[in-house]
Structures are given as structure tokens and as C-alpha cells.
């Protein structure tokens, strides 16, 4: 196992930047599809950090976790997009600012 040339810290930083960009997307975008995309971005940022740590510790568990995250993300996207379709059908909009069924 050759010593890594790129320090894990850099990966962590990059992961953090991507994560916070995804967060901003969730917070600031009103298009539900874009919000979803941002969530995917956040998940990927987390995956990146996981991969970096897995290499750091020479432990495969991190990579397995990435695998699970991807699987769950796929499920989540499927459900989420189905929801968006359903909501669009009833409200004719995917602007999340117009979705507040939790409060009348």
C-alpha cells in the first residue's frame, strides 16, 4: 500500500465545501427538483469524506457505508421524485414555498 500523495485533510475540506454548497442549495432554491439535487450533492460530499477516511484507516467499512448511502439515495430519489410528481399533479407547482400542508 503506497503512501497517499494527497492529504486526507484536503479531501475533508473539499467534502465540506461541497456539502455546504449542497446545503445552500437546499436552503435557497425553491424548485423542489433542485432541492433534491442539492441533497444528492450533500450526500456525495459525505461519501467523499467517507472514502477519504476509509483510505486513511485502511478500513473497508467506510467504503461499504458509501455503498449503502448510494443505495438509500437511489431509493430516496425514486420516492422523492414520485412525490414531486404527485404534488405537481395536485398543486400544479413544485415551488416548495407553496407547499405547507403541515400548517393551514
Amino acid at each position: 500500500m503506497e503512501a497517499p500523495e494527497v492529504a486526507t485533510e484536503l479531501y475533508v475540506l473539499l467534502s465540506a465545501i461541497l456539502f455546504i454548497l449542497g446545503t445552500l442549495g437546499v436552503l435557497l432554491r425553491r424548485n423542489a427538483i433542485l432541492v433534491f439535487m442539492s441533497i444528492e450533492l450533500m450526500l456525495n460530499a459525505a461519501n467523499l469524506a467517507l472514502a477519504a477516511f476509509a483510505r486513511q484507516w485502511g478500513n473497508l467499512d467506510g467504503q461499504l457505508l458509501i455503498f449503502f448511502v448510494m443505495t438509500i439515495a437511489a431509493a430516496e430519489v425514486a420516492i422523492g421524485l414520485a412525490l414531486i410528481v404527485a404534488i405537481f399533479r395536485s398543486k400544479k407547482s413544485i415551488n416548495i414555498d407553496e407547499l405547507h400542508l403541515f400548517k393551514n
Binding site: 446545503t23 437546499v26 436552503l27 425553491r30 416548495i96 414555498d97 407547499l99 405547507h100 400542508l101 403541515f102 400548517k103
Partner: peptide, 14 residues
């Protein structure tokens, strides 16, 4: 606080 808007909740989570 309980606006019913998901974005405010997300901000709270952040």
C-alpha cells in the same frame, strides 16, 4: 416558528 415551510425547517436543522 412552525411555519410549515420546509426551508425554514432545513435552516433550523443546519
Amino acid at each position: 416558528v412552525q411555519t410549515g415551510f420546509v426551508r425554514t425547517y432545513a435552516l433550523g436543522v443546519l
